[in-house]
């Protein structure tokens, strides 16, 4: 499997570290305990398109949000999780 890094180009999966679902958002500090529990522990296990975090540890050392099809491993897109500048093409 190869991942299209927006900066480095197409790279072998061995250069990356998988973190998991990119969609959970940390709840406010004063939020309910249940919301924090869900944020930390509860994950969907979708069949099909999934947005997930991958870290390009052996390349540009950036976090990516990779869209991957969990059935086919097709990767239609990948972007930097935190672009440096609002205008960055990547």
């Amino acid at each position: 499997m190869r991942i299209p890094c927006p900066y480095c180009g197409s790279r072998d999966i061995g250069e990356f570290v998988y973190r998991g679902d990119a969609s959970p958002v940390r709840p406010a500090a004063d939020g309910a305990e249940a919301a924090m529990f869900a944020y930390v522990y509860l994950r969907d296990n979708p069949m099909g398109r999934h947005e997930e975090h991958w870290y390009h540890t052996q390349g540009c050392r950036n976090w990516l949000v990779v869209t991957r099809d969990t059935l086919t491993h097709e990767i239609p897109s990948a972007r930097l999780a935190a672009p440096l500048n609002a205008g960055d093409a990547v």
């Binding site: 480095c8 072998d12 250069e15 390349g59 050392r61």
Partner: peptide, 24 residues
């Protein structure tokens, strides 16, 4: 390196941060 080093994918002026034999 598991990176395409042939022209035009890679050419004078190109850079790749990658891994060879487990070494960055």
């Amino acid at each position: 390196a598991f990176v395409d080093l042939a022209t035009p994918a890679f050419a004078p002026g190109s850079v790749a941060v990658t891994v060879i034999a487990h070494i960055g």
